[in-house]
């Protein structure tokens, strides 16, 4: 049975992804756009993520050791930006919300020894907690370092009674020794997809969004279905001339969109909007 499957489907088993038009005609490909010029660095997205995804608050000491579990983090970079002055260096602050880039060719997926992380048909980079043995190779190979490991048994200490009552029942609480990361709020996506399927339709644009996008006061984060050409996200990707399956984007100088570390050929699903400035040129 297995051998005949191998021989019969040989050519389809030898396909490299992503390729041009991979999601054409498919139902879903979740993607995101983050407008850095709109981001004020308020950390509302991080807070929302903690609430939605049962992220443990690790405490001061662990945080100082670098064991924080923020699936989305606001990175601060101090100048030298356009507005930086000697007098008010804070003005040069720039922010970058960093979360799992849901790469189409994710470096983390290749190296996981047990296949705990893999690619779903709707374009997510998923993490199976039950399968994870905690080798942390995925984190080692992630260029963005957005994978977070459960260094401690957080359920025992992060939510002392009665705090456990605020946990989201749709999301599991992770035990020690497994890797976790941003899921694009997969519990919301699954629910929306199921609801749409019972009504015999596809998920409409804007029907579902991630916690971070929902909480963002400046609407810097846009989430949606890239496979649907009429969705806001797809239009923004198009407007900024980013192609999902290409590692070198041919685009006009006026557009702001870029993806981080495109030259590593990870093909991220998140586009950042920001004029990339090279001050020395």
């Amino acid at each position: 049975m297995s051998l005949s499957n191998l021989i019969k489907n040989w050519s389809s088993l030898r396909v490299r992804r992503p390729y041009e038009g991979q999601y054409k005609g498919k139902d879903y490909k979740w993607a995101m756009v983050i407008d850095l010029d709109a981001c004020t660095g308020c950390n509302a997205c991080t807070t929302a993520c903690y609430a939605e995804n049962n992220l443990p608050v690790v405490g001061k000491e662990s945080f100082a050791k670098g064991q924080a579990m923020h699936w989305i983090r606001i990175e601060r970079y101090w100048g030298p930006g356009d507005h930086m002055t000697e007098e008010f260096p804070q003005r040069g602050a720039q922010f970058l919300p960093m979360l799992c880039q849901q790469c189409e060719a994710a470096p983390c997926e290749v190296v996981c020894p047990v296949g705990a992380t893999h690619h779903t048909p709707d374009g997510l980079n998923s993490q199976v907690y039950n399968r994870c043995i905690g080798s942390r190779y995925c984190s080692a190979n992630c260029p963005y370092k957005v994978r977070y490991f459960n260094w401690w048994q957080y359920p025992e200490r992060a939510w002392p009674n009665p705090l456990e009552l605020q946990l989201n029942p749709d999301v599991t609480v992770r035990s020690k020794g497994v890797m976790e990361k941003c899921t694009f709020c997969v519990q919301r996506l699954t629910e929306a997809k199921n609801r749409a399927r019972t009504e015999n339709r596809l998920v409409a644009d804007g029907e579902v969004t991630t916690a971070c996008a929902q909480a963002c006061p400046t609407s810097a984060i846009t989430f949606g279905n890239l496979a649907n050409e009429k969705s806001t996200v797809a239009k923004m990707w198009q407007a900024h001339q980013i192609k999902l399956a290409s590692d070198v984007q041919e685009k006009d100088d006026t557009v702001r969109g870029y993806r981080i570390f495109e030259d590593l050929r990870t093909y991220p699903s998140i586009v950042y909007l920001e004029q990339v400035r090279d001050l020395e040129a």
Partner: peptide, 19 residues
């Protein structure tokens, strides 16, 4: 090895071919 990969349900990883 190849037939195990071909039959694994969650097959696609990192854009590499399944086999």
């Amino acid at each position: 090895i190849a037939s195990a990969q071909a039959n694994f349900l969650v097959q696609i990883r990192g854009g590499r071919p399944i086999v």
